[in-house]
Design a binder for these strands. Structure first.
Lengths: 217, 217
DNA sequence: CTTTTATGAATGAAGG
DNA sequence: CCTTCATTCATAAAAG
Protein backbone atom coordinates (compact mmCIF):
# COMPACT_ATOMS: atom_id res chain seq x y z
CA UNK A 1 0.00 0.00 0.00
CA UNK A 2 1.17 3.41 -0.49
CA UNK A 3 2.90 5.14 2.26
CA UNK A 4 3.46 7.42 -0.47
CA UNK A 5 0.87 9.89 -1.12
CA UNK A 6 1.61 12.63 -3.48
CA UNK A 7 1.26 15.48 -1.10
CA UNK A 8 0.27 18.91 -2.11
CA UNK A 9 3.74 20.12 -2.23
CA UNK A 10 3.50 23.31 -4.06
CA UNK A 11 0.25 24.56 -2.90
CA UNK A 12 -0.01 28.20 -3.52
CA UNK A 13 -2.81 28.48 -1.07
CA UNK A 14 -2.44 25.66 1.37
CA UNK A 15 -5.27 26.79 3.48
CA UNK A 16 -7.63 26.12 0.69
CA UNK A 17 -6.44 22.64 0.17
CA UNK A 18 -7.07 19.43 1.86
CA UNK A 19 -6.49 20.53 5.37
CA UNK A 20 -3.18 19.39 6.58
CA UNK A 21 -3.03 16.61 4.09
CA UNK A 22 -3.69 14.39 7.01
CA UNK A 23 -6.40 12.60 5.23
CA UNK A 24 -9.96 12.48 6.12
CA UNK A 25 -13.02 13.39 4.24
CA UNK A 26 -13.15 17.07 4.12
CA UNK A 27 -15.42 19.66 2.90
CA UNK A 28 -13.57 21.91 0.62
CA UNK A 29 -14.41 24.98 -1.24
CA UNK A 30 -13.35 25.07 -4.78
CA UNK A 31 -12.91 28.03 -6.97
CA UNK A 32 -16.55 28.33 -7.70
CA UNK A 33 -17.49 28.58 -4.09
CA UNK A 34 -19.17 25.22 -4.22
CA UNK A 35 -18.79 22.71 -1.46
CA UNK A 36 -17.52 19.35 -2.45
CA UNK A 37 -16.38 16.31 -0.57
CA UNK A 38 -12.79 15.45 -1.01
CA UNK A 39 -11.43 12.01 -0.87
CA UNK A 40 -7.86 11.47 0.00
CA UNK A 41 -5.66 8.86 -1.47
CA UNK A 42 -5.73 6.90 1.71
CA UNK A 43 -9.46 6.76 1.73
CA UNK A 44 -9.42 5.81 -1.86
CA UNK A 45 -7.01 3.05 -1.13
CA UNK A 46 -9.03 1.70 1.73
CA UNK A 47 -12.12 1.72 -0.32
CA UNK A 48 -10.37 0.01 -3.13
CA UNK A 49 -9.26 -2.74 -0.87
CA UNK A 50 -12.62 -3.21 0.62
CA UNK A 51 -14.08 -3.58 -2.77
CA UNK A 52 -11.30 -5.93 -3.62
CA UNK A 53 -12.48 -8.15 -0.82
CA UNK A 54 -15.72 -8.68 -2.56
CA UNK A 55 -14.08 -8.97 -5.91
CA UNK A 56 -11.92 -11.73 -4.61
CA UNK A 57 -14.71 -13.59 -2.99
CA UNK A 58 -16.80 -13.27 -6.07
CA UNK A 59 -14.09 -14.52 -8.31
CA UNK A 60 -13.44 -17.51 -6.22
CA UNK A 61 -17.07 -18.35 -5.94
CA UNK A 62 -17.49 -17.89 -9.63
CA UNK A 63 -14.59 -20.15 -10.37
CA UNK A 64 -15.90 -22.70 -8.01
CA UNK A 65 -19.19 -22.52 -9.65
CA UNK A 66 -17.78 -22.93 -13.05
CA UNK A 67 -16.05 -26.07 -12.02
CA UNK A 68 -19.15 -27.39 -10.40
CA UNK A 69 -21.43 -26.66 -13.25
CA UNK A 70 -19.17 -27.27 -16.17
CA UNK A 71 -21.77 -29.59 -17.57
CA UNK A 72 -24.73 -27.32 -17.46
CA UNK A 73 -24.22 -23.65 -17.91
CA UNK A 74 -27.05 -22.68 -15.73
CA UNK A 75 -25.02 -20.95 -13.15
CA UNK A 76 -23.26 -18.88 -15.70
CA UNK A 77 -26.43 -17.35 -16.87
CA UNK A 78 -27.49 -16.52 -13.40
CA UNK A 79 -24.25 -14.87 -12.68
CA UNK A 80 -24.51 -12.68 -15.67
CA UNK A 81 -27.72 -11.30 -14.35
CA UNK A 82 -26.10 -10.52 -11.11
CA UNK A 83 -23.53 -8.45 -12.80
CA UNK A 84 -25.90 -6.25 -14.59
CA UNK A 85 -25.26 -3.36 -12.37
CA UNK A 86 -24.60 -0.37 -14.55
CA UNK A 87 -21.75 0.74 -12.49
CA UNK A 88 -19.93 -2.48 -12.86
CA UNK A 89 -20.69 -3.12 -16.45
CA UNK A 90 -20.79 0.22 -18.09
CA UNK A 91 -17.43 0.33 -19.64
CA UNK A 92 -15.72 0.29 -16.34
CA UNK A 93 -13.18 -2.46 -16.40
CA UNK A 94 -11.35 -1.23 -13.46
CA UNK A 95 -13.08 -0.59 -10.24
CA UNK A 96 -10.27 1.38 -9.01
CA UNK A 97 -7.52 3.06 -10.75
CA UNK A 98 -4.27 3.47 -9.08
CA UNK A 99 -2.17 6.05 -10.66
CA UNK A 100 1.48 6.05 -10.34
CA UNK A 101 4.08 8.64 -10.61
CA UNK A 102 5.80 8.85 -13.95
CA UNK A 103 8.99 10.77 -14.07
CA UNK A 104 9.25 13.48 -16.63
CA UNK A 105 12.18 13.26 -19.01
CA UNK A 106 13.92 16.01 -17.16
CA UNK A 107 13.44 14.33 -13.84
CA UNK A 108 14.66 11.07 -15.23
CA UNK A 109 17.72 12.70 -16.60
CA UNK A 110 18.55 14.23 -13.28
CA UNK A 111 17.96 11.00 -11.46
CA UNK A 112 20.13 9.07 -13.84
CA UNK A 113 22.88 11.56 -13.45
CA UNK A 114 22.78 11.35 -9.69
CA UNK A 115 22.66 7.61 -9.84
CA UNK A 116 25.66 7.48 -12.09
CA UNK A 117 27.64 9.58 -9.71
CA UNK A 118 27.99 6.45 -7.79
CA UNK A 119 26.79 7.46 -4.40
CA UNK A 120 24.52 4.58 -3.77
CA UNK A 121 22.00 4.61 -0.99
CA UNK A 122 21.00 8.24 -0.81
CA UNK A 123 20.39 9.28 2.72
CA UNK A 124 17.18 10.78 3.92
CA UNK A 125 18.61 14.20 3.69
CA UNK A 126 19.93 13.57 0.25
CA UNK A 127 16.54 12.43 -0.87
CA UNK A 128 15.04 15.61 0.43
CA UNK A 129 17.40 17.64 -1.64
CA UNK A 130 16.86 15.63 -4.74
CA UNK A 131 13.15 15.81 -4.31
CA UNK A 132 13.32 19.52 -3.93
CA UNK A 133 15.23 19.84 -7.12
CA UNK A 134 13.01 17.53 -9.08
CA UNK A 135 10.01 19.30 -7.79
CA UNK A 136 10.86 22.15 -10.03
CA UNK A 137 10.27 19.92 -12.98
CA UNK A 138 7.06 18.31 -12.02
CA UNK A 139 5.22 16.90 -9.09
CA UNK A 140 7.15 14.39 -7.12
CA UNK A 141 7.47 13.19 -3.59
CA UNK A 142 10.32 11.94 -1.54
CA UNK A 143 8.84 8.52 -1.67
CA UNK A 144 9.01 8.56 -5.40
CA UNK A 145 12.67 9.36 -5.26
CA UNK A 146 13.27 6.75 -2.65
CA UNK A 147 11.52 4.11 -4.68
CA UNK A 148 13.28 5.12 -7.80
CA UNK A 149 16.69 4.60 -6.31
CA UNK A 150 15.56 1.45 -4.68
CA UNK A 151 14.38 0.00 -7.95
CA UNK A 152 17.28 1.33 -9.86
CA UNK A 153 19.76 -0.33 -7.59
CA UNK A 154 17.96 -3.61 -7.55
CA UNK A 155 17.52 -3.81 -11.27
CA UNK A 156 20.97 -2.69 -12.03
CA UNK A 157 22.21 -5.41 -9.81
CA UNK A 158 19.99 -8.02 -11.31
CA UNK A 159 21.05 -7.15 -14.78
CA UNK A 160 24.64 -7.52 -13.82
CA UNK A 161 24.00 -10.91 -12.36
CA UNK A 162 22.24 -12.01 -15.47
CA UNK A 163 25.21 -10.90 -17.49
CA UNK A 164 27.64 -13.19 -15.76
CA UNK A 165 25.97 -16.39 -16.72
CA UNK A 166 29.07 -17.66 -18.37
CA UNK A 167 30.94 -19.48 -15.69
CA UNK A 168 28.35 -19.94 -13.03
CA UNK A 169 27.52 -23.50 -13.99
CA UNK A 170 30.56 -25.18 -12.48
CA UNK A 171 30.04 -23.59 -9.14
CA UNK A 172 28.28 -25.17 -6.23
CA UNK A 173 24.81 -24.50 -7.37
CA UNK A 174 22.82 -26.49 -4.97
CA UNK A 175 19.20 -25.93 -5.54
CA UNK A 176 18.36 -26.58 -1.96
CA UNK A 177 19.48 -24.45 0.89
CA UNK A 178 22.54 -25.35 2.80
CA UNK A 179 21.77 -27.73 5.63
CA UNK A 180 23.32 -25.59 8.30
CA UNK A 181 21.31 -22.56 7.64
CA UNK A 182 21.92 -19.89 10.14
CA UNK A 183 18.91 -17.72 9.69
CA UNK A 184 15.95 -18.84 11.65
CA UNK A 185 13.79 -19.25 8.73
CA UNK A 186 10.19 -20.10 9.39
CA UNK A 187 9.76 -23.77 9.63
CA UNK A 188 10.12 -25.01 6.19
CA UNK A 189 7.03 -24.49 4.26
CA UNK A 190 5.29 -27.52 3.16
CA UNK A 191 3.89 -28.07 -0.23
CA UNK A 192 2.31 -24.93 -1.54
CA UNK A 193 -0.94 -26.66 -2.12
CA UNK A 194 -1.61 -27.55 1.40
CA UNK A 195 -3.47 -25.06 3.38
CA UNK A 196 -6.58 -24.58 5.31
CA UNK A 197 -9.22 -27.15 5.00
CA UNK A 198 -12.36 -25.30 5.74
CA UNK A 199 -14.72 -23.42 3.52
CA UNK A 200 -15.15 -20.66 6.01
CA UNK A 201 -11.77 -19.51 5.02
CA UNK A 202 -13.60 -17.34 2.66
CA UNK A 203 -13.47 -14.12 4.45
CA UNK A 204 -16.62 -12.27 4.84
CA UNK A 205 -17.14 -9.22 6.82
CA UNK A 206 -20.72 -9.33 6.05
CA UNK A 207 -22.44 -11.00 8.94
CA UNK A 208 -25.13 -12.52 6.86
CA UNK A 209 -22.81 -13.91 4.30
CA UNK A 210 -20.63 -15.09 7.06
CA UNK A 211 -23.28 -17.15 8.63
CA UNK A 212 -24.10 -18.45 5.25
CA UNK A 213 -20.59 -19.60 4.82
CA UNK A 214 -20.62 -21.31 8.10
CA UNK A 215 -23.64 -23.28 7.23
CA UNK A 216 -21.77 -24.40 4.22
CA UNK A 217 -19.27 -26.11 6.37
CA UNK B 1 -14.74 3.23 -13.15
CA UNK B 2 -12.33 5.87 -12.49
CA UNK B 3 -12.83 8.89 -10.50
CA UNK B 4 -10.70 11.77 -11.17
CA UNK B 5 -7.28 10.73 -11.79
CA UNK B 6 -4.94 12.66 -9.68
CA UNK B 7 -2.12 14.61 -10.94
CA UNK B 8 -0.57 13.31 -14.05
CA UNK B 9 0.56 16.79 -14.40
CA UNK B 10 2.89 16.17 -17.20
CA UNK B 11 0.18 15.49 -19.67
CA UNK B 12 -3.05 15.98 -17.92
CA UNK B 13 -5.99 16.60 -20.09
CA UNK B 14 -8.84 16.80 -17.71
CA UNK B 15 -11.39 16.05 -20.32
CA UNK B 16 -10.07 12.57 -20.70
CA UNK B 17 -10.08 11.79 -17.09
CA UNK B 18 -13.66 11.35 -16.28
CA UNK B 19 -14.07 8.23 -18.26
CA UNK B 20 -15.80 6.25 -15.66
CA UNK B 21 -19.19 4.80 -15.40
CA UNK B 22 -22.03 6.22 -13.47
CA UNK B 23 -20.10 8.93 -11.83
CA UNK B 24 -20.10 12.58 -12.34
CA UNK B 25 -16.76 13.22 -10.84
CA UNK B 26 -15.01 16.44 -10.92
CA UNK B 27 -11.51 17.36 -11.39
CA UNK B 28 -11.23 20.63 -9.73
CA UNK B 29 -8.56 23.18 -10.01
CA UNK B 30 -8.24 25.56 -7.22
CA UNK B 31 -6.62 28.92 -7.24
CA UNK B 32 -3.17 27.51 -6.87
CA UNK B 33 -3.53 25.46 -9.98
CA UNK B 34 -3.53 22.32 -7.98
CA UNK B 35 -5.63 19.29 -8.69
CA UNK B 36 -7.74 17.80 -6.01
CA UNK B 37 -9.93 14.78 -6.06
CA UNK B 38 -13.47 15.37 -5.17
CA UNK B 39 -16.37 13.11 -4.72
CA UNK B 40 -19.84 14.24 -5.24
CA UNK B 41 -22.85 12.91 -3.47
CA UNK B 42 -23.81 11.21 -6.64
CA UNK B 43 -20.55 9.39 -6.80
CA UNK B 44 -20.87 8.32 -3.25
CA UNK B 45 -24.23 6.93 -3.91
CA UNK B 46 -22.96 5.05 -6.89
CA UNK B 47 -20.13 3.68 -4.88
CA UNK B 48 -22.44 2.58 -2.19
CA UNK B 49 -24.48 0.77 -4.74
CA UNK B 50 -21.50 -0.89 -6.18
CA UNK B 51 -20.37 -2.22 -2.89
CA UNK B 52 -23.85 -3.38 -2.19
CA UNK B 53 -23.77 -5.27 -5.45
CA UNK B 54 -20.84 -7.24 -4.26
CA UNK B 55 -22.47 -8.02 -1.01
CA UNK B 56 -25.51 -9.26 -2.85
CA UNK B 57 -23.54 -11.28 -5.32
CA UNK B 58 -21.58 -12.91 -2.61
CA UNK B 59 -24.60 -13.82 -0.61
CA UNK B 60 -26.37 -15.23 -3.58
CA UNK B 61 -23.38 -17.18 -4.68
CA UNK B 62 -22.99 -18.54 -1.25
CA UNK B 63 -26.58 -19.61 -1.22
CA UNK B 64 -26.15 -21.15 -4.59
CA UNK B 65 -23.12 -22.95 -3.51
CA UNK B 66 -24.82 -24.12 -0.41
CA UNK B 67 -27.57 -25.79 -2.28
CA UNK B 68 -25.16 -27.38 -4.65
CA UNK B 69 -22.83 -28.71 -2.05
CA UNK B 70 -25.62 -30.27 -0.15
CA UNK B 71 -25.70 -32.77 -2.94
CA UNK B 72 -22.09 -33.00 -3.92
CA UNK B 73 -19.70 -33.44 -1.14
CA UNK B 74 -16.65 -32.99 -3.24
CA UNK B 75 -17.48 -29.39 -3.74
CA UNK B 76 -16.06 -28.50 -0.41
CA UNK B 77 -12.74 -29.88 -1.40
CA UNK B 78 -12.74 -27.91 -4.57
CA UNK B 79 -13.47 -24.75 -2.78
CA UNK B 80 -10.53 -25.29 -0.57
CA UNK B 81 -8.30 -25.85 -3.50
CA UNK B 82 -9.47 -22.80 -5.24
CA UNK B 83 -9.21 -20.62 -2.30
CA UNK B 84 -6.22 -21.65 -0.37
CA UNK B 85 -3.71 -21.88 -3.09
CA UNK B 86 -2.19 -18.45 -3.35
CA UNK B 87 0.59 -19.75 -5.49
CA UNK B 88 -1.52 -20.96 -8.30
CA UNK B 89 -4.05 -18.22 -8.18
CA UNK B 90 -1.73 -15.33 -8.60
CA UNK B 91 -1.27 -15.05 -12.26
CA UNK B 92 -0.68 -18.71 -12.79
CA UNK B 93 3.04 -18.69 -13.05
CA UNK B 94 5.47 -21.12 -11.61
CA UNK B 95 4.06 -23.58 -9.22
CA UNK B 96 7.48 -24.14 -7.88
CA UNK B 97 7.59 -23.40 -4.23
CA UNK B 98 7.89 -19.88 -3.15
CA UNK B 99 10.22 -18.88 -0.46
CA UNK B 100 8.49 -16.10 1.18
CA UNK B 101 5.32 -16.35 3.09
CA UNK B 102 2.33 -14.65 1.62
CA UNK B 103 -0.58 -14.15 3.93
CA UNK B 104 -3.85 -15.41 2.70
CA UNK B 105 -6.68 -12.91 2.67
CA UNK B 106 -8.14 -14.40 5.78
CA UNK B 107 -4.90 -14.27 7.60
CA UNK B 108 -4.40 -10.71 6.59
CA UNK B 109 -7.80 -9.78 7.73
CA UNK B 110 -7.22 -11.29 11.11
CA UNK B 111 -3.87 -9.66 11.42
CA UNK B 112 -5.26 -6.30 10.53
CA UNK B 113 -7.98 -6.67 13.04
CA UNK B 114 -5.56 -7.51 15.78
CA UNK B 115 -3.35 -4.67 14.77
CA UNK B 116 -6.20 -2.25 14.92
CA UNK B 117 -7.10 -3.32 18.37
CA UNK B 118 -4.26 -1.16 19.37
CA UNK B 119 -2.09 -3.36 21.46
CA UNK B 120 1.16 -2.74 19.75
CA UNK B 121 4.16 -4.94 20.21
CA UNK B 122 2.60 -8.33 20.71
CA UNK B 123 4.38 -10.35 23.29
CA UNK B 124 5.93 -13.66 22.54
CA UNK B 125 3.00 -15.39 24.03
CA UNK B 126 0.59 -13.30 22.07
CA UNK B 127 2.38 -14.14 18.89
CA UNK B 128 2.07 -17.78 19.66
CA UNK B 129 -1.63 -17.44 20.01
CA UNK B 130 -2.02 -15.48 16.87
CA UNK B 131 0.09 -17.93 14.97
CA UNK B 132 -2.02 -20.75 16.21
CA UNK B 133 -5.14 -19.08 15.00
CA UNK B 134 -3.72 -18.14 11.65
CA UNK B 135 -2.43 -21.62 11.21
CA UNK B 136 -5.98 -22.71 10.66
CA UNK B 137 -6.05 -20.61 7.58
CA UNK B 138 -2.81 -21.46 5.98
CA UNK B 139 0.78 -22.25 6.57
CA UNK B 140 2.44 -19.73 8.81
CA UNK B 141 5.09 -19.46 11.44
CA UNK B 142 5.65 -17.28 14.45
CA UNK B 143 8.42 -15.52 12.65
CA UNK B 144 6.00 -14.52 9.96
CA UNK B 145 3.68 -13.01 12.48
CA UNK B 146 6.46 -11.24 14.24
CA UNK B 147 7.77 -9.77 11.04
CA UNK B 148 4.36 -8.77 9.94
CA UNK B 149 3.70 -6.72 13.01
CA UNK B 150 7.12 -5.23 12.82
CA UNK B 151 6.62 -4.14 9.27
CA UNK B 152 3.09 -3.07 9.79
CA UNK B 153 4.03 -0.81 12.62
CA UNK B 154 6.98 0.71 10.87
CA UNK B 155 5.12 1.36 7.67
CA UNK B 156 2.09 2.70 9.33
CA UNK B 157 4.30 5.16 11.05
CA UNK B 158 6.16 6.15 7.97
CA UNK B 159 2.99 6.56 6.07
CA UNK B 160 1.70 8.90 8.68
CA UNK B 161 4.80 10.96 8.43
CA UNK B 162 4.58 11.16 4.70
CA UNK B 163 0.98 12.13 4.97
CA UNK B 164 1.55 15.04 7.20
CA UNK B 165 4.29 16.34 5.09
CA UNK B 166 2.54 19.25 3.66
CA UNK B 167 5.07 21.95 3.73
CA UNK B 168 6.69 23.60 0.81
CA UNK B 169 10.34 23.04 0.36
CA UNK B 170 11.00 26.69 0.90
CA UNK B 171 10.29 26.25 4.54
CA UNK B 172 13.00 25.74 7.05
CA UNK B 173 13.25 22.22 8.26
CA UNK B 174 10.82 22.26 11.05
CA UNK B 175 10.57 18.97 12.69
CA UNK B 176 7.19 17.45 12.47
CA UNK B 177 5.41 18.34 15.59
CA UNK B 178 1.83 18.63 14.63
CA UNK B 179 -0.64 16.82 16.79
CA UNK B 180 -0.83 13.27 15.76
CA UNK B 181 -4.24 13.62 14.45
CA UNK B 182 -5.80 10.42 13.49
CA UNK B 183 -6.99 10.31 10.02
CA UNK B 184 -10.60 11.02 10.05
CA UNK B 185 -13.00 8.62 8.65
CA UNK B 186 -14.52 9.42 5.37
CA UNK B 187 -18.12 10.29 5.61
CA UNK B 188 -19.90 7.11 6.29
CA UNK B 189 -20.66 6.09 2.80
CA UNK B 190 -19.45 2.62 3.35
CA UNK B 191 -21.92 -0.10 3.57
CA UNK B 192 -22.43 -1.27 7.09
CA UNK B 193 -21.50 -4.79 6.16
CA UNK B 194 -17.97 -4.07 5.28
CA UNK B 195 -17.42 -0.84 6.98
CA UNK B 196 -14.29 -0.38 8.90
CA UNK B 197 -14.02 2.42 11.30
CA UNK B 198 -10.66 3.75 10.35
CA UNK B 199 -8.88 4.28 7.10
CA UNK B 200 -5.91 2.35 8.27
CA UNK B 201 -8.19 -0.47 9.11
CA UNK B 202 -7.50 -1.78 5.75
CA UNK B 203 -8.77 -4.95 4.52
CA UNK B 204 -6.70 -6.99 2.26
CA UNK B 205 -5.50 -6.47 -1.15
CA UNK B 206 -5.64 -9.28 -3.51
CA UNK B 207 -4.02 -9.61 -6.85
CA UNK B 208 -6.91 -11.65 -8.05
CA UNK B 209 -9.19 -8.75 -7.72
CA UNK B 210 -8.44 -7.40 -11.10
CA UNK B 211 -8.83 -10.62 -12.92
CA UNK B 212 -11.99 -11.16 -11.02
CA UNK B 213 -13.41 -7.98 -12.28
CA UNK B 214 -12.23 -8.79 -15.70
CA UNK B 215 -13.89 -12.13 -15.84
CA UNK B 216 -17.14 -10.56 -14.93
CA UNK B 217 -17.27 -8.38 -17.91
C1' DC C 1 -7.81 -3.07 -29.50
C1' DT C 2 -4.82 -6.82 -27.45
C1' DT C 3 -0.36 -8.27 -25.95
C1' DT C 4 4.17 -7.29 -24.23
C1' DT C 5 7.48 -4.70 -21.81
C1' DA C 6 9.25 -1.35 -18.56
C1' DT C 7 9.00 0.34 -14.22
C1' DG C 8 6.66 2.49 -9.91
C1' DA C 9 5.14 0.64 -5.81
C1' DA C 10 4.16 -2.93 -2.05
C1' DT C 11 5.92 -6.12 1.19
C1' DG C 12 8.24 -10.19 3.63
C1' DA C 13 12.44 -10.75 5.49
C1' DA C 14 17.39 -9.59 7.07
C1' DG C 15 20.64 -6.70 9.43
C1' DG C 16 22.04 -3.25 12.62
C1' DC D 1 12.97 0.23 16.46
C1' DC D 2 15.02 1.55 11.87
C1' DT D 3 16.79 0.83 7.23
C1' DT D 4 17.79 -2.10 3.31
C1' DC D 5 17.22 -5.71 0.06
C1' DA D 6 14.86 -9.15 -2.90
C1' DT D 7 10.82 -10.35 -4.91
C1' DT D 8 6.44 -9.62 -6.52
C1' DC D 9 2.41 -7.00 -8.08
C1' DA D 10 0.20 -3.66 -11.04
C1' DT D 11 0.06 -0.46 -14.61
C1' DA D 12 1.70 3.12 -17.94
C1' DA D 13 3.86 2.92 -22.16
C1' DA D 14 5.23 0.58 -26.21
C1' DA D 15 4.64 -2.86 -29.62
C1' DG D 16 1.74 -5.75 -32.57
Amino acid sequence: MEWNKPPPQQAAHPEELNGGGGGGGNLNVNGGGMFVKVMTDEQMEVLRKQIAVYATICEQLVELHKSLTSQHDLAGARLVNLYSDPFVTSGGHKITGRQRWTPTPVQLQILERIFDQGNGAPSKQKIKEITAELCQHGQISETNVYNWFQNRRARSKRKQQATQQNHAESEVETEVESPNEKKTKPDDFQTPQIASSKPEDLCFQNPEANSAMHSMD
